[in-house]
Structure formats: structure tokens, C-alpha cells
């Protein structure tokens, strides 16, 4: 094969790959859009698309309360938290080159949840301050896990095990604070134990959306370096990527995303953990893993919430549904990784 032919073949492959990325991402966006539409139009009863549009546009005779006050905040909160969890999760998984190193397994979601509960119940904060407390505590826990696990050999396994220990401890903090809460509200408790978008309000959506823009943007800015980091520290160094700096920025971005989402909807079980590996299957070896994982996170939360609300004999919070789906997947991943030692 001549040099020109090689060049042509490579260019063709790149083009096919690009088309595949666009196709896959487009399909995911369409799926998210369908789920949002489903959440808005179908609840106990279904609305015709025309009524839905009329309600969204604020016409007098449309069912505005159901759509604008009940379903829209719920769909919006599911969408933004799903995107945040998906992006934050895959950032950690790629950075640590291990699908098990997701924020909900190594204790970051647990720390954000415990901090948020503490700030709300004990210190009676609300709004942005709660999210800020959750972010700070998430960062503190990351640094702690990092410091505890950095020693000779097999740091990955130790990091995950230490993360599991930390999250057991933080979960008991959450359980304790909830027992101390003056008005024991079970719906509220469910939010902090498994994650839920019940009773969502637009006021909860804006901080998460802000976090998505700020930290998602930061993540997008370092995504090329993060891709290169997958080759290993030495290779990345040789290609001119500063490994430690990239890791710091990715960590801040991912913790910010996860902590803001957690302080709004609770630690929705396993969404951060599931999104990355599923995105990797959908996208194959091509680029676009980060946005795909974010979209899959949104799909998981929207679909899980819809299933939990309307397709089971009882209404269940979204975290129970995703937990029931995610735990078998974790087991499957353990079995599979044992066989071929693969990473995400």
C-alpha cells in the first residue's frame, strides 16, 4: 500500500468513526428527548401533544398546573442530575482507569449526601449553601481517600476498598442525622438514603444546571488531555500532557458535578457507576465517551423515575429502581473483569 492509500484509508476510517459518534450521540439525544416528552405528557392520565404545548406556552385553558408545576420540574431535575451523575462518574472511571472507581462506590456521593443532610437538618441551611457544603465535603473526602490509599503497589484496589470503608462510615452519619431530624419525614429520608426526584421544584433545578455549565465546561476543556491520560502517565507526559494538573482539574469538575446533583436529588444509586460502562459499549472505541455517558445518565434517571412512578404496583423513588438494576450489573462486571482483566 502506498503512502497515499494509507492516508486515504485512515481518513476514511476517521470519517466513518466521526459519523458513528454523531449517530450514536444523536440517537441518545433523541432518546432523552422522548423520555422527557413521556414524563411531561403521560402520568396518571395522558395529554395530547397539542394540550401539552398549550400548557407549556401558558395558555389559559390548558392543564398548566399538572404540566408546569408538577411534571416539568420533575423532568428537568431528572435530566440535569442524570447528566451530572453520568459525566462525573465517567470522569472518575476514565481518570482512574477502573470502572469500579465511580463516585458512588468510592464514597464521594456518600460524603456529599451526608454533608447535605447535615447542613439541612442540623445547621438549617438551604439553597446554594447546601450544595457548597456538599462540594467541599466531597473534595475533602477525595483528598482523604487519595492520601490513605497512596502507598506502594496496587493502589487501585486499595483506593476502592478504602472508598467502600469511607462510604460505610458516611452512610451511618446520614442515618444518624436522619434519626435526629425533628420532623421525621419518610419521603425526605428516602431522598437521602437512595435518591429521589419526588416533589421536585424549579428552584432545585437552577443550581444543578449552573453546576452542569461550570463544571461540565471545565470537564470538556480537559477532555482531550483526559483521553490521553488513558494511555498511562508516562505516555501522557511524552505527549505533553501534565498528568497531575489534568487529574486535579478533572477531580474538581467531577466532584462538583456529583455533589451538586446529590445535594438536589440525593445519591441516586449507581447512576454514576452505570453510565460510563454503558456509554463505552454504545460508543465503542471511538471518541465522545463523556457526552454519551452524560446522556445515558439522564436516560437512566428519567426512565428509572418513570418506571418507579407508573410501571410498578407501588410508587418507588428512582434510587430504588436504579439500585435494583445497578447491583446485578456490578456483580456482572466483577465476574467479567475477573475473566479478562479489562478496563472500561
Amino acid at each position: 500500500m502506498s503512502a497515499a492509500e494509507v492516508h486515504m484509508a485512515l481518513a476514511g476510517r476517521r470519517q466513518r468513526e466521526g459519523r458513528r459518534v454523531v449517530l450514536a450521540l444523536g440517537g441518545l439525544v433523541a432518546l432523552v428527548f422522548c423520555l422527557v416528552f413521556l414524563t411531561l405528557s403521560c402520568g396518571r392520565g395522558c395529554l395530547a401533544p397539542a394540550d401539552l404545548m398549550a400548557a407549556l406556552l401558558g395558555h389559559e385553558d390548558a392543564p398548566g398546573f399538572i404540566v408546569n408545576d408538577l411534571r416539568l420540574p420533575r423532568a428537568a431535575l431528572s435530566l440535569v442530575t442524570g447528566l451530572c451523575f453520568g459525566l462525573g462518574g465517567v470522569a472518575f472511571q476514565v481518570m482512574l482507569r477502573n470502572p469500579l472507581a465511580s463516585p458512588d462506590i468510592i464514597g464521594i456521593s456518600a460524603s456529599a449526601g451526608a454533608a447535605a443532610v447535615f447542613a439541612i437538618v442540623i445547621l438549617s441551611f438551604d439553597g446554594w449553601v447546601v450544595s457548597a457544603v456538599a462540594v467541599v465535603s466531597g473534595l475533602v473526602v477525595v483528598v482523604m481517600i487519595w492520601a490513605l490509599s497512596s502507598r506502594r503497589g496496587a493502589a487501585g484496589a486499595r483506593l476502592i476498598l478504602i472508598g467502600i470503608g469511607v462510604s460505610a462510615m458516611l452512610d451511618s452519619v446520614t442515618a444518624y442525622v436522619l434519626l435526629e431530624a425533628p420532623a421525621w419525614d419518610r419521603a425526605e429520608a428516602m431522598r437521602w438514603l437512595t435518591g429521589s426526584v419526588n416533589g421536585a421544584q424549579m428552584g432545585q433545578v437552577w443550581p444543578v444546571l449552573g453546576a452542569l455549565v461550570v463544571f461540565g465546561g471545565l470537564l470538556a476543556a480537559v477532555s482531550r488531555d483526559l483521553d490521553i491520560l488513558r494511555l498511562g502517565d508516562d505516555a501522557a507526559q511524552a505527549l505533553g500532557v501534565r498528568a497531575d494538573g489534568t487529574r486535579l482539574r478533572v477531580t474538581v469538575a467531577a466532584v462538583g458535578l456529583v455533589a451538586f446533583a446529590t445535594s438536589a436529588a440525593g445519591p441516586i444509586s449507581f447512576v454514576a457507576f452505570l453510565s460510563g460502562p454503558i456509554a463505552a459499549r454504545v460508543m465503542g472505541p471511538s471518541r465522545g465517551l463523556l457526552p454519551a455517558a452524560g446522556l445515558i445518565g439522564a436516560v437512566l434517571v428519567l426512565a428509572g423515575d418513570y418506571v418507579g412512578q407508573f410501571m410498578l404496583p407501588y410508587r418507588l423513588p428512582v434510587g430504588v429502581v436504579t439500585g435494583a438494576v445497578g447491583a446485578p450489573f456490578l456483580l456482572y462486571l466483577i465476574v467479567r473483569t475477573n475473566r479478562n482483566g479489562g478496563t472500561i
Binding site: T194, L316, P317, G319, V320, A324, A327, P328, I334
Partner: peptide, 11 residues
């Protein structure tokens, strides 16, 4: 994983 699955089912 088993604990999380079990507690999801318990809830």
C-alpha cells in the same frame, strides 16, 4: 453489591 441490591429490595 449484594448489600445494595438487598437494601433496594427492602425499601
Amino acid at each position: 453489591a449484594t448489600s445494595i441490591a438487598a437494601s433496594a429490595f427492602i425499601i
